[in-house]
Simulated scan of single mutants.
Amino acid sequence: MGIYFNNILLVTDMDGTLLNSDNKVSMNNKQALEYFVNEGGLFTVATGRMEKSVIPYLDDLPINVPGVLYNGGALYDFQSQKCIWNQVLPDDFILLLDKIVRSFPGIGVEVYNNENVSFITHNDYTDSHCIKENFVRKTKSLEQIQGSLQKVMLVWEPSCLNQVETFLIQNATGVDWVRSEPQFLEILAKNVNKGNGLRKLKKHLNLHKVYTVGFGDHLNDMALLTASDIGITVDNGHDKLKSIACYCGKHHNEDALADIIYQKDLLFDLFKMRK
């Protein structure tokens, strides 16, 4: 066990950042992350995915601290397979969700609770998402949903989701929302985001003297990058992330994480620039 990356916590988004277009962890990224951890680094993911969507990747990821799931809505310990903190949507949000379903025919609605996803409505976009994530599509009515909602994902044509955002601005209280991809609008509890998830993780682990590196590619990663000591995006990242990132790396299909890790002095140069 080395010490080169001692006191560095690396937190990465998955889709569009760590994973390539085939939704796989490349061998180069896997080996680079193993090297990072073997040299004393702390590593985890910050993702919009739920537990079941991350677990299949654990053989390729040397995660050694809890992960930030549901875009900051939960901290999950993969070793003990237990949720150690979560923040759910307000109980009355389901009333507004019913109004959304009735007001926007054709919208796809995915509800995440109890470590599962249920489909209130579906469309071509939700069908594609099912295939990508290997979901078993369980269709339920809102009346059949039991328990608190971890998050809700509205899935539709991007231009149509713009209209839904206007509706939320006018009608929603006690919640926040973010685009994780152009066709995904995720609704979360107030102040839930990856940045606050990272802060809760550091507090939970008592990591007061650790430097943080955040990697991401889309708007749901902005809070992660700004909460990190060093925020890094990828060449395929959203322009808004490129405008705030400390560094823009390679495309996610070109082993962006491995490239940063193997440029060992780059991280330390970036830390010096931020001081």
Rank of each mutant, 00 (worst) to 15 (best):
N171G: 03
E157D: 15
W156I: 03
V164F: 04
A172P: 08
N171K: 06
V164L: 02
N162W: 07
T166D: 07
W156P: 02
I169K: 07
A172G: 11
V155W: 05
E157W: 01
N162Y: 07
G174L: 12
K151T: 09
L168R: 01
E165V: 12
P158I: 10
L168Y: 05
S148E: 14
K151E: 01
E157S: 11
L161I: 06
E157V: 11
Q170N: 13
L154I: 07
I169R: 09
L154K: 03
A172S: 10
L149H: 07
L168F: 09
S148F: 08
N171T: 08
F167C: 06
I169G: 00
V152E: 02
L161K: 01
P158G: 10
V152F: 09
V178R: 02
Q170C: 04
C160S: 14
T166I: 07
I169Y: 06
V178N: 08
L149K: 02
M153F: 05
W177S: 00
Q150E: 15
E157Y: 07
T166M: 01
V155T: 09
G174E: 08
V155I: 15
Q163Y: 11
W177D: 03
L168S: 03
M153T: 09
L161V: 03
C160I: 12
D176A: 12
L161R: 00
N162R: 10
S159H: 12
D176L: 03
C160T: 06
W177V: 06
P158S: 08
L149F: 09
K151I: 01
S148L: 07
V164G: 02
A172L: 14
Q163C: 10
V164R: 06
E165G: 02
G174P: 03
L154T: 02
T173D: 12
S148A: 08
G174Y: 12
W177Y: 15
V175G: 04
D176W: 02
Q146K: 13
V152G: 01
S148R: 11
L154V: 04
N162E: 15
Q170I: 00
Q146T: 11
S159I: 13
V164W: 03
W177P: 02
Q163L: 11
F167Y: 14
V178W: 05
C160N: 12
Q163F: 06
N171Q: 11
Q146S: 13
T173I: 13
T166F: 09
W156K: 05
L161F: 01
S159W: 08
L161Q: 06
Q170G: 02
L154Q: 03
L149I: 15
V152R: 00
V175S: 03
V178C: 07
